[in-house]
Amino acid sequence: MKPTHPELRRRLAAEYVLGTLHGGARRRFELWLRSDPALRREVTGWEQRLVPLATTLPEVAPDPAIWRRIEARIDPSRVQPKPAWWSNLAFWRWSSFATAGLASLLFAYVVATPALHSAAPPDAMVVVMGDSATAQPSMTVAWTPEGRGKTRLRIRVIGHAEMAPDTAWELWMLPDGNKPPRSLGLINTHETQVVDLPEDLRGLLNRAAGMAMSLEPAGGSRTGAPTGPVLASGKCVKI
């Protein structure tokens, strides 16, 4: 049970920081801390009061190998990368299979809207994204390869999608030439949505190999690359 008595709360916070609160009591206290901002402030206060004891210790120089290991852990470009999912050929095989049949079916649905009937319908780029778990189509992304101004992606989420709390869906373009994915932004669970991208991305998009959607922490990937599992992916086709 969470402590409510102010004196007990103060004492536990002090002994937590001092280190004399240990074992099960320490773990329980850490759990309370997560949901109790006032208790966290109490802890921060003690950290600040006592920290001069630690920071006035004589320095001990670490072995230079320690920094090299840290560097390798935080900068993936310094270590041999594992083959990434977007360079895996087998991964794309089913997706091209799915695309061949579905693209023409979806053409009328996502592209041939009434507004376009007056003029000759422009070419369209379509990506049919297959759900990674079920291999069923779960989303389509379409845009017009020609034109001026911002590039408007029209997205359709198929079925009733649900997003887990504190997570986000991030859409990625896989540029040609096996380059790393580039974020196209976050999407939501609405059935239809649009994402406007700068005009200069259109050329890159038209040549893209495919798109993928990954599960990311709320607010999107913090590294600039997909960090979570790929929920859906598909190849780009011109129709």
């Binding site: 630690a54 210790l57 320095e59 001990v60 670490p62 920094w67 840290i70 560097e71 935080i74």
Partner: peptide, 18 residues
């Protein structure tokens, strides 16, 4: 990452002592 290397250079000796 250069700022991180500098942060490490300035603080790792004291933190290792801790």
């Amino acid at each position: 990452q250069r700022a991180f290397a500098e942060l490490y250079r300035r603080t790792s000796g004291r933190l290792l002592a801790v």
